[in-house]
Nucleic acid binder design. Sequence first.
RNA 1: GGGCGCAUAGCUCAGUUGGUUAGAGUGCUGCGUUGACAUCGCAGAGGUCAGAGGUUCGAUCCCUCUUGCGCCCACCA
Length: 946
Amino acid sequence: MELAKAYDPTQVEDRIYAFWEKNGYFKPETQIYLEPAEPQFVITVPPPNVTGTLHMGHALTAATEDLMTRYHRMKGARTLWVPGTDHAGIATQAVVEKKLAREGKDRRQMGRSAFLEEVWEFKEYSHTIITNQSKKLGMSMDWEREAFTMDENLSFAVRTAFKHLYDKGLIYRDTRMVNWDPVQLTGVSDLEAITEEDGEAGHLWTIRYPLQTNHWEGPAQDGTHEWGSGQWAEGATRFITIATTRPETLLGDTAIMVNPDDDRYKGLVGCRAILPVLGRWTPIIADEAVEMTFGTGAVKVTPAHDFTDYEVGKRHHLTFIEVLDASAKMNENAGPYAGLDRFECRKRIVADLQKEGLLVKVEDYRVRLARGERSGAVIEPRISLQWFCDMKDMGKMAGDAVRDGRIKIVPERFEKEWFRWLDNIRDWTISRQLWWGHQIPVWHVEGEKAEVKRRTTDDGRPAEYCALSEAEAYATAFKDWGPDVTLVQDTDVLDTWFSSGLWPFSTLGWPRDTEDMRKYYPNTMLETGYDILFFWVARMVMMGLELTGKAPFDTVYLHGLIRQADGKKMSKSRPEKAVDPLDMIAAYGTDALRFYLLTAGAPGNDIKVDVRVGPDGKKAVDQIEGARNFANKLWNAARFVIGKVRETGEVSEVSEGVEGVSSVKTPPDTSDTIDTLPDVWIAARTQQVVADVRRLLDDYQYGEAGKLIYEFVWNDFCDWYLELSKLSLNAPLLLHTLDTALRLLHPFMPFVTEEIWQKLKEGMRGPAFDYPALMLAPFPKPDQWSMVNGQWSIEQFTVVQEAIRAIRNMRAEYKVEPNKRIPALIGAGVWTATFTQMSEAIQMLARVDDTLRIAEQVAAPNQAVTLALGDVTVYLPMAGLVDLAAERVRLQTELGQIASQIEKIEKLLNSDFGKRAPPAVIEKEKARLADAHTKQAQIQERLQTL
RNA sequence: GGGCGCAUAGCUCAGUUGGUUAGAGUGCUGCGUUGACAUCGCAGAGGUCAGAGGUUCGAUCCCUCUUGCGCCCACCA
């Protein structure tokens, strides 16, 4: 049980993790300590994307969930934490495509199956990294239950879920305008189209379209008025002026619209404008969608490339003309601009408009652009054939689950967002034109490819089959079409969040009736960052309610986001400000990183990580360093305890829990073994902390709980109790207190606590060490006896602490040599017995010599500093050091402060406060007043004698 | 356009049912190393709790408004 002088996490963490894992301690089946009354605790990890490595956000997730898991496991709850990873459709496909591009390859040349082989290979590689990092972080997950969203059984769950929703009519296919990512060539959901809050730098172009009149019906057709000739609009006399941020889309305009109440344009509604470039006429229509105050009050309408215009187009039966292709290049409908990229086209068309005298003005303008979440490409609204999921009823159910308390969201404020989103939910675009993902389990009859909203052919036979497998689809199709039918599976894949939505139950075996499903569903807790509340949490709740009939978990705990010191999201584009958790682990250890993350803030609040780059180029974070120091402090405290216990030889027995430490339960005045004030005090303080930590952890206040343990360990245990142990040793209690601290701290800092505990176990005996590992040992329980009866000891100890601090303070003020012992006289009044008991401790801790005199009343020496502490007066007869004049000034100053304090309290008590405040509060003030009066008398008396 | 969060010591942040003496870490100042720990110890300085009003005996905390930041949702071209 030798301990190195300083704690070195690199020598410990991997070994300890391997020890836990090898022995199967992460499995619920191997738990030894179980409390029958404790409800089981089940949590499923938010599956990291198999796109690479873990970042600080994952570290926060890991720390928080491992804390929860270890706490419940030690409380005696049957505990399961299910690990897994997510195939992350778009994200992973993008990463692999980029990788292939570097190798000069393209997925379209490779073909679907060859490409998928590449992705699977990448997935394996990424998965290995993620698994190793998860273990580095200390995550106590049951690896034998690990899941991947594209595992066979989880894919089966996806098909089952799809079929259920399809058969119920909730999944349908339609041609609609969706957000289209022209780089990834797929539709994306509303949530994946990201808009910058303040928009992006762009322009607002004001353009005029000539109107058709009796004298001008468009450019002359004789070849002299070609577009770009500068004479295109020659002869036109009347114009309508519109404003746009996307001039290239005018090629697809099929109307101009104005507000029906706009007097400026009343006469023009029904007239025709001539579309520049192409020369086709477009009607001027009236629609409420137009904001009169913006721009010119007249708007171009491009029904095929804008969400608003799409709706307008449907309302007014306009023609839908697409001018952009899937990759956002101008298509054949774009006339002279066909084949150009959209932005190139924009430049040219603006130049041409100017040439033709149709450009009125250009203004700088902040454009609210939607960009693809993964590609960053500017989203182009596009009409396409997609699969949708009707969310109305499921959204209502999910809202109700929170409304009626079946699900609790922590912190509560996110419930408002929950309701707002779910109450206004729109149908979910679930299809993606990608290759990596779950292919939609619908088989179309070849030659009868399903049209919009049409599942049957003209003769009433099904045109498509939704099935759990191709064989099943064929089996059904044979009945309708005969043996010659050929089925073709839909080429789209599902949005990655579709499978994530099944996660809490698909990981347990759903839809099969597995033992895990019966035992561990619903989950207890869902923990994740608030940024995916809608993406993920809402979808799980909706899917869970719809498919299993149960809310998939009781509680949703949302943690904040990790940010850079400037408050921005950590990004790879600014590597100097970003932090890699592995670097932090290498520098400070996992425990330090975890403790920092857990105590850095409050639930749901973001954490800003302030990085310093050292002279060696290495990154440093002061707060993590502080947590590292704490681990070392604990380590050295343990080193001391072990050394002390060994010195005493005999004592090496520690009992389990507080129950067993008989001396702690014994009143201080009757015990043979533990009758000192410090012993009773530390036992009582321990119980207080245990009770508070449990209360805070049960209330999700993890940061507060961590800080409490930190203060207890560092201040109470190390600075006071260990110091006092040097005077008189109570080995069993010392060990017991350390053991309790280790147990409290284990969920926060699993490695260092387990390592110390194992060292103790090597050399100690007793029921406390009957468990094979700290992680399987019981979490401390508060003991009412010690708390109630310890209160008195805490009061006594506090008075002594104050006296010691006051003496130290004076020594520092008078610059007394640190090692020099000084005389002291203490008039302790009602505390005389307490101080007498603690006289040796006072001598040691305040460096007082053996002439120390303690009595109810002591005669004040002439040459002395006086410390008025209320009931207690301390005189320090520091001959030669005390300047009586200076001492007089010091006491006068203090007297002044006390006088003003007395005045303040008296004024308060004489005000309405004295009549209306609760008696307890008034009593407290009266006590303070009495204390101040005592001090005042002490000082006045002293001043008179001086 | 609607909604939410934050503003507390130089810095990073706690402060959950409103009690008059607002805390921690870190940084800063002074002193200190014969063994638990210098990744340390002792002591100290440092805050009109963003601003204004209101409710209350009493407000960092509750209400209203203002200012400054951050974020979410929404079809102002």
